[in-house]
Amino acid sequence: MAAIIETRNLTKIYGGKVKALDDLNISIEEGEVYGLLGPNGAGKTTTINLLVTRIAPTSGTAIVNGFDIVKNSLEVRKSIGVVPQDLTTDEDLSGFENLKMVSQFYDVPAEEAKERIHKLLSMVSLDDVKDRLVRQYSGGMRKRLELIAGLVHDPKILFLDEPTLGLDVTTRTQMWKYVREIQEKLDVTIILTSHYLEEVDALANRISIIDHGKVLATGTSEELKSNLKGDIILATMKTDKDAETLMKYPGAIEAKENGPRAVRLKVQNSDEELPKIIQYISGNSLSITRLTVQKPTLDDVFLEYTGSEIRSEEPTDSRQEMMNLRRLRR
């Protein structure tokens, strides 16, 4: 697969001293959902803002869909769709009118735009309320409208910057469903930033962890987790003797007692090791009462690379943030 986005030593320095992005080199492939994960101030939103030509790089560049973000920003803008962190639809217009206006910005022929808008509206179940003013929408409805506003001109790439910020859990899961559906049906490459680890885990095929403007690790969620070397298997046996025998299991990297008759085994890959352990247990005629597998979470991965737990994102612009939350709460 070919890279649809490639950054080349992309650097952004704010005010001559704050290095938000430091020689960033990432490559995003066509058709994938790519997640950017990082703590507050890591450079996620700066990366997005540079790639969507909202700001200009201090040095370096990036190629988006074959166009240089510095030399050919207008062409870049035409080939991408953006769902910014903030709400950007006009409350005084209806949902349909908002989408119609955006389609006109991209010179989509009227007939084609109409057809596409209807398709998108039904994809995110907004067709019933399309003629209602956006001010009457609920928070979840507005976010869904934002999502498809970035898609009316049939972009090849969609940028999602914190798509579920401020939404409740149910609405968030619903948004994930829509994002997946969009990716499948419309065949777009999606670049996603989020500070919800489970969101990136649920949506992205490939993830880059960035901090201090640099990429620390890239890979699928599984790859990143297996790099941590070790799943944990907890077993409780019927007798002390059985527990002792299990402690001698040869495939374990590490075996420890974990309470009375309980054993904690650290293994390379629990999916591969578990059948062997079961074979070992039955081969040695051990009696087991309880068996639990603990997989490392993306949280563990994050902790490993950045040395800190992910903090809830402090909005860079608190005024804007409050306004968004206030409007979402309606």
Partner: peptide
């Protein structure tokens, strides 16, 4: 600008 609508205009190829 305050309500965020301007952001949508600024990322459009207009």
């Amino acid at each position: 600008r305050r309500l965020g609508v301007l952001g949508r205009f600024l990322i459009a190829p207009i």
